[in-house]
Structure formats: structure tokens, C-alpha cells
């Protein structure tokens, strides 16, 4: 486990949380005074305090993510970048993002599926801390094959938020699902409730973890780490409030789909080029 990363991240997040909590306190007081003066009573419940992030107003954004599976080459730089950026445990059982490989051999009805955490691929990379897909299909009669990057879907109706007994995991105004690590009790009900396997348990802190779309970056005008490092632009991120943002154009110009729509979670990661077997 990379201790530097492990320590760096909680500190950074603590600062963010402290600011956020301070904002909640100050905001609640101010909002009370402000609301009573300016707004009709019915808006009171909607008025969540604005977090104190310099130059950022979460009411002005609506983030979304796009994945173009036809572009992904399975290089796994996104996985590596995510682990480094977010201090994710450096083993084969904890990921905020991962990549799946779907391979149809001639005559097969069903795909052979694996991800970078599969033992064969770890043997190929030489370590759980390095990521690569092995060459097992080199001489096989492959009919169709593609990669599918996965991450938290930051759903509009997140089941994980619904089941959290303390409210430690919550939805921001700009459409991101976050976890307050100082309030999470570590019951892992949210891990159970996520249909996408996107949540993982941070054993060092005894709390649940997951992709934040690099909230600490996007609120500073940067791209999520995985989007930043993708060499083929298979990952697209942006603000749906801006019609010319990469994600708005991605959704406008493609026929997009989402994973497991029947769960009613209404995901905000939009896919292009996935197959019926991808779930």
C-alpha cells in the first residue's frame, strides 16, 4: 500500500470536509436569515447551504460522464491515475474505476469477460499495483472484442444514498454522490445497494469509498484524473448545463445508453458502443 497516497488523500479530503462543514454551519445561519427575507416559505426546504469552495457554486453545474467504448484500448492508465490521485488501496480488490474486457470467440453466444483485477492479468502485470490485460486471446479465433471502462454512475436516484442510515453519503446539487468520511459508520449497506459494484470498503479508515468524479479537481475547473490521462478520449466529462461542453455534445451526437436502467437509479454515466452483455 502506498502510504504517501493513503495519507495525502485523507488530509486533502479532511480540508474539503472541514470547509464543507463550516459552510454548512455558517450557511445554515445565513440561509435562515436570507430565506426569511427574500423567499416564500416553500423554498426553505430546498435551500441547502452552498459549500465554501473558492470560486465554485454548485448550483451552477450539472456534471455528467460519457464513455465511448469503441475508443477504449484497455491501456488501464485511467485505473492507475485514479489509484494514485485518490489514494485507493493498492490491491486487486479495491477500485474506484476499472476496465472490463469482453471477448466473443467464433461460435460463442456469450462473451468471455474479465477485468484488470483477474489473476491472469495480475500475473501478466507482475503485481497488484500495476495494471495490464494479458495476451490470452493472441492465438484465439476472436470474433468481436471491446473494452468497457466502469466507474460510479452518480445516479440521479442513487440507491446507495437511499439506504445510508446516517446520511453520510449524499448527493450534491451539481449531481455528484459523495461520502462524508467523518460521519460514515462503516455498515456497508451502500456497498450492498449499489447495482454496479462501484463502492469499496476502505479498511484503513473503516468507511466506504467510491469514485467522486475527482470532486476536488472538477470544482477547480480541472478534469477527473481518469479523463485527463485517457490517451484516446474514451472518457468524456463535463457540465450538462453548458450545451457546448464535451459531455453535452457527446450525449447530443450519439445514441447513448446507461447500465442497468431497470434498477430505476437513473445513472449519469452515458455509454456508447456497449453490447447487450454489458451490465
Amino acid at each position: 500500500m502506498d502510504h504517501q497516497d493513503e495519507e495525502k488523500k485523507p488530509k486533502a479530503e479532511n480540508a474539503l470536509r472541514r470547509n464543507f462543514l463550516r459552510a454548512v454551519g455558517v450557511g445554515a445561519a445565513c440561509a435562515g436569515a436570507w430565506v426569511s427575507k427574500t423567499l416564500p416559505a416553500k423554498s426553505l426546504a430546498d435551500e441547502t447551504p452552498i459549500p465554501d469552495i473558492p470560486g465554485y457554486d454548485w448550483r451552477k453545474h450539472k456534471w455528467a460522464f460519457g464513455v465511448d467504448a469503441t475508443r477504449c484500448i484497455g491501456c488501464l492508465r485511467c485505473v492507475e491515475a485514479c489509484k494514485a490521485e485518490n489514494g485507493v488501496a493498492r490491491d486487486a480488490h479495491h477500485f474506484r474505476t476499472w476496465v472490463e474486457r469482453y471477448v466473443y470467440l467464433q461460435g460463442d453466444d456469450q462473451a468471455h469477460v474479465d477485468s484488470q483485477s483477474e489473476p491472469g492479468n495480475i500475473a501478466a502485470s507482475g503485481s497488484e499495483q500495476a495494471f495490464r490485460f494479458d495476451n490470452r486471446y493472441q492465438n484465439a479465433p476472436v470474433e468481436k472484442a471491446f473494452f468497457v471502462p466502469k466507474l460510479c454512475n452518480h445516479c440521479t436516484h442513487p440507491a446507495c444514498v437511499q439506504v445510508c442510515p446516517t446520511g453520510a453519503t449524499y448527493q450534491t446539487k451539481d449531481g455528484v454522490v459523495l461520502i462524508d468520511h467523518s460521519y460514515c459508520i462503516g455498515c456497508q449497506y451502500c456497498v450492498q445497494a449499489c447495482p454496479y459494484g462501484a463502492r469499496e470498503f476502505n479498511h484503513a479508515m473503516g468507511v466506504t469509498d467510491k469514485c467522486t468524479w475527482c470532486y476536488h479537481r472538477i470544482t477547480k475547473g480541472l478534469q477527473p484524473a481518469c479523463v485527463e490521462v485517457c490517451p484516446v478520449e474514451a472518457r468524456v466529462f463535463g457540465d450538462r448545463n453548458d450545451p457546448e461542453s464535451p459531455i453535452s455534445r457527446f450525449i447530443k451526437n450519439n445514441r447513448v445508453s446507461v447500465l442497468k436502467p431497470y434498477t430505476g437509479n437513473a445513472p449519469n454515466v452515458f455509454y456508447v458502443g456497449i453490447d447487450k452483455e454489458v451490465s
Binding site: 460514515c184 462503516g186 473503516g206
Partner: peptide, 20 residues
């Protein structure tokens, strides 16, 4: 629980959409 010392968070600030 990963943080049993916080168990009372669920009592003091119950998030009512959660059965738990």
C-alpha cells in the same frame, strides 16, 4: 461496523429513507 464508535450517528441523525 467499520467505525462502531459512531454507531449513534444513526440514532441522532437518522436518515429516514434508510430502513437501517
Amino acid at each position: 461496523l467499520g467505525n462502531p464508535q459512531r454507531a449513534f450517528n444513526a440514532v441522532l441523525t437518522p436518515h429516514w429513507t434508510s430502513a437501517m
